[in-house]
Design a protein around this nucleic acid. Structure first.
Lengths: 215, 215, 215, 215
DNA sequence: TCGTAAGCGAGACGGTACGTCGAGTCTTGCT
DNA sequence: AGCAAGACTCGACGTACCGTCTCGCTTACGA
């Protein structure tokens, strides 16, 4: 009732006759959720992920660190998993680089991405979420689009290479993307050592040139 | 550690022949540990890993399923992590195949390995352990040798290919191995779909031939 | 306190006549408190007291039942205790009866009071408030005058009996009142059974005549 | 366990020596419950009842004070109510006194009982339990027998008085008992003042002699 | 007649306690 | 000394209310 009136007013104001796209519906009864608390929670989550890792992360700990009641967290996220997915989604992703050649695009992108692994809890979060994904379809639904979006610059670089004729037009781009990041994933998951920036060139070169000696 | 204990116990029980000189003296006062219980615990662990996944696996549950007291588990493993590592170590690994060509070696090996993912909790366990590894150096120490050993057939196949001249002698074999299994790892960790056997050929071909169109 | 406010508001709304001199000045800026909400809250409180009892009574529940925001309750009462005291104060009390003899006065009064126990949440509220009273002096201050007022018809009946010469002039009337209602209190607090109306006569007779056989 | 103790006591009292049929079989699998913890919990409960009262008593507080985990409390009592009933049952009760006359029996008994009100949390616990009793039949079942047993010395004193001819043989002893303790109950529940020892004599005298002036 | 100040329902806020669960340890009596 | 059973302390879980605090709104008064 009130809601309808308000929505109507809003629409009237924006003077866009039938604009179906009104997103701000549903609007508020009661006190609105605190954007401040929201951010404090995500920040605390990332901080603690970096400090104690995923499995030792407790909702209670996040609440304490964020200066927030537990209920305020549970009002927004059903459990620590979607919370971590959301926090993870806020971390920087692959940054596209368009240098004119596939090899150098990839090298620039991967090198700067590797830096993120050393600056953010990314390395701790990724395997943990991957692990939970398997047994929790609801998590998969949250997690997958985030992942997809994060690797899209990689696919774009490959598409540019196709356009340039650097790679064959009937290449399976998805598989190619997996091949490029594969070694990083393997070493991230199964190795303690930090992955060194100088590994990027051999990785990219081998992925592009292949293992087998060209006859 | 656990393996050593098991080996020692096993030896003590079975062969009395050469034993006097053995170093595993100290041996038994009191009742020896039950090999039966040991195996029941590992079996229950694998069964539950498959059913509920790693994060919902509880020591209490394992004890119940194995018909064993909790203390009997803690007497052998310090916590659920080394227990799972041990159980994981009991799963079948890559099986070497020597067919005369690198491509077909790899295809045979990967195809049969993919089958294991569908038959065992491997797919559930690997990412979970990888995730814990990061924040638990003690776990890394247990886990890494197991991993290394499991991929050794892959490296051997590559070494044979070097010997045959199929690949260049100065190839970084470790990196090559990562490149080959990379796409599988990526899809295992970040995808819900089971990896299909028919993906193996394109994967191996792309890894061997490279992404870039040979000029 | 609350009563004073209510009275003041009521007067302010209706009569404008004699008001200038009234002390309840300061009066209104802004919207006056809703008498409707006030009553809805008290009604909801009594209803819920009857349904779920005192300890399961929540302010949130009262607000919900009364169709009122929590703040509207806290604006009027500091907590659920004074609220319940107020609600309790609205329940009917002992009703004086002047029949000419102490015995029959008491029997009439107690009989009709017992009926209230079966029709109102009185039986649930009294022990609860008594229990809180002990550790909450502020509550005592609210509660005691209400109690005193409620039993005054009893004392008046006794005073009439003194005047008539039915009882000795130097009788401790307060103690006598306690003796009369004592058995009801004991049974109310420590017994599940409803107190039956037919118990009233023996109770009063025994209180008046005493336990000991007159020699 | 408490039940067992009570049953045991009962049996011992009824002195049926040879009950071979001991029901407490079932006996031990696993570690037996710690009698030490049991007592520590009851002690902590009584201490806290005295300090903060019933409604501010928390299970968490009891656990902390007793140096015990919460689960250890919940393993024995379903909630704080039965716990408090049990603790209450451990408090001293009316102590029988046989002086040869009803009046002096009662005066001695009540006087020493009043002392308990000042030394134990009795005064805080009784109204609280009475209040909860109403809406919790399970509690009533625990609470009633304890109450009954606690007032039995009073009934016994009355029975002796009947035997002696001090009171009429067809007196309703239960009602008489209620009349005697009635004033104490009323003042306990509805008055802040401690009940003074010197009130005992007038109370007993009025209960025995009656309110009405003997004609 | 209109501004303004308080009241209104709604519901989020930081907290505290709830009752449950599992971790890892300890204590039974038995083997 | 190992075994199954199960109680132990501890600490996190997710829920429910507490009493307080915005929200956007209504409502009456006094300028």
């Amino acid at each position: 009732m009130t809601k309808i009136e308000r929505a109507a007013t809003g629409r009237a104001r924006s003077g866009r006759g039938a604009t179906a796209s009104d997103k701000d519906v549903a609007a508020s009864a009661g006190r609105p959720r605190s954007e401040e608390a929201h951010q404090a929670i995500l920040d605390a989550t990332l901080a603690l992920l970096g400090e104690v890792g995923f499995s030792a992360l407790t909702v209670e700990g996040v609440a304490g660190r964020a200066g927030v009641g537990k209920a305020t967290i549970y009002r927004r996220w059903a459990s620590k998993l979607p919370l971590v997915v959301d926090a993870f989604g806020g971390l920087p992703a692959l940054e596209d680089a368009d240098t004119g050649s596939l090899a150098s695009d990839l090298k620039v992108m991967l090198r700067s991405y590797l830096e993120l692994f050393n600056k953010t809890p990314l390395a701790a979060v990724l395997p943990a979420l991957a692990s939970e994904r398997a047994h929790d379809p609801a998590l998969a639904e949250l997690f997958d689009p985030v992942l997809l979006q994060r690797r899209s610059p990689l696919v774009q670089a490959l598409e540019r290479a196709v356009a340039r004729g650097e790679v064959s037009a009937d290449l399976d781009l998805d598989l190619a993307a997996d091949l490029i990041v594969g070694p990083i994933a393997v070493r991230l998951f199964f190795t303690g050592r930090k992955i060194q920036a100088k590994m990027v060139d051999p990785m990219v070169d081998m992925a592009l040139g292949g293992i087998a000696r060209p006859r």
